[in-house]
Design a protein around this nucleic acid. Sequence first.
DNA 1: ACCGGCCCTGTTACCGGTAACATCATGTAA
DNA 2: TTACATGATGTTACCGGTAACAGGGCCGGT
Lengths: 331, 331
Amino acid sequence: MKKKRPTLQDIADRVGATKMTVSRCLRTPESVSEGLRERIFSVAESIGYIPNRAPDLLSRATSRSIGVLVPSLTNQVFADVIVGIEALTEPAGYHLMLAHYGYSPELEERSLASLLSYNVDGVILSDHHHTPRSLRMLETAGIPVVEIMDTYQAPLQQAVGYDNVRAAFDMVSEMIRLGRRRVIYLGVRLDERTRQREQGYRQAMEAHGLTPVALHSRQRSSYSVGAALLKQILNDYPDTDAIFCTNDDVAVGAYFECQRQGMDVPDRMAIAGFHGHDVGQAMTPRLASVITPRQAIGEAAAKMLLATLQGETTNERVLDLGYRIECGGTL
Amino acid sequence: MKKKRPTLQDIADRVGATKMTVSRCLRTPESVSEGLRERIFSVAESIGYIPNRAPDLLSRATSRSIGVLVPSLTNQVFADVIVGIEALTEPAGYHLMLAHYGYSPELEERSLASLLSYNVDGVILSDHHHTPRSLRMLETAGIPVVEIMDTYQAPLQQAVGYDNVRAAFDMVSEMIRLGRRRVIYLGVRLDERTRQREQGYRQAMEAHGLTPVALHSRQRSSYSVGAALLKQILNDYPDTDAIFCTNDDVAVGAYFECQRQGMDVPDRMAIAGFHGHDVGQAMTPRLASVITPRQAIGEAAAKMLLATLQGETTNERVLDLGYRIECGGTL
DNA sequence: ACCGGCCCTGTTACCGGTAACATCATGTAA
DNA sequence: TTACATGATGTTACCGGTAACAGGGCCGGT
């Protein structure tokens, strides 16, 4: 027996006008006579009117909302990206609809369907790989799409990010330049970007005639996993002199394990991570890492999407925001 | 000139039936004759029909979605909570609408209005303090509300969490029991829970006749801030023998600074954090911390909300999921 | 043969805003 | 005074599903 929430009609009844007039008053107050306007606002306030987007959703198939699909919310990287996106969409009056899919394309498909069923005006996607069905849906929905985090592959429409392969290549090359020869790659999960970084790592190793060795954990990324992987290295490849980790969590976890083993970093073991998160930058020695412009990526993606929604057309399809190699004290 | 996305009518036209029949077929396939059913599904597939929730939103003021308001997404704590919530809402067919408000009640109000304008069926809130307008909106919306993270204050309807004051009290008492006398509290930002932990800290100190000292940073929580605060302590209160930090980031940051200063932990300085995140648990010495059941809180909140939405009534208003004091190696 | 019921499908109306158009009063220039 | 612009408000229809009700064909039992 919950009471229905107030509508424009309820306001109209109380001030003796039609809901059309009330609608006008709330949208363009100056188009309504002063006395009426004041009464309408006062009644709206007193009965606690809350705008209702449902009719808009229905009649104009527009929701003033943007769907954002990220693989994981617990991954700090995407939290930063989202902050960047919202910094632009919120002032523009767009509501963000977030969904995460745990790195599974099937779940991405379901989440996408859910977002589209709410008539989102545009979507931001975090992976390049989508199911055929997802692609179909995006096509029939006919809304703007921006893909983020990677510039390596051809985008559906537009993309913002950096080149994961090249970033990994550069970091590993730097390690080799500094004299490391037995560099191992540490990965977790098997998402796209982890594979791309591995690819860059392999290219760098092979370019210098070195043999690439990659270790993976199937668990989700964590400090503990980094520690466990380092133990495995000491066991299986005891003469390793450097590790390049797919992210900072793993790198810092591995560093903790080095400490426990009394293994000097970087003399005996060099360590590099990816993304340049605060943990690594706050510890001593400072963690070597590829610093990525996560928040800027979010902002740029939102900017692109909003521009397209406002009808602007551009022929710039891919925006590369680059990265920075931070050597820190662990190389 | 974007093409309209397919509707039930489009399917109906192609199979020579009415949209009502198509609607029935998609919802309860067995209520439609076999031949028609097959044609409908095949056409739906071929034109790429995507369900549209807008009409439901409008005609039944229900969206099968739940609004979740968290202060921050970059705060790992809430990422965990969200994972817990979604673990229950997703299988139940509810879509999560996330919004964050940066610890500002005014922004919370705006976010809440936005969620309500999409006719969410229920909301989960992360703070106890709301603007009068927010309270009004919740009341007129007439939807179930669950507040999370704290059991200290009387809930609007229902609440799930743990007692921040008591948790802090217990941790600080433990530090004192182990011989610490000049324990300082390190806080960041001034959100509710930080203040509650400070309150628990003060109670513990005063219960033992000790003088409480609290230091705050106005910056958002980070490892760097923890390090900076520790430096400040060494300068202003050089004989401090323990710090209790409002969260693990600050605690670990402070620990890094102790390392840099060559200050032994825990002999010279004991350190305790809050939440029991993986960083602290993976490092050596393991960080003392109050381990909170974040994911379980999310799950319990979702369970409560779903139960209420299914019409169940309960007189259990507050669910306390407790916490655990982990002494680690830093006390 | 007739009736009742079942199964399948169709018809109508509705949800709550707002675009588009209609109406009406007042003002103002010719 | 007439004609027409201007401003304020009302009327109608629509968006896309689905609840509720209305047929109509067919079957079996009497």
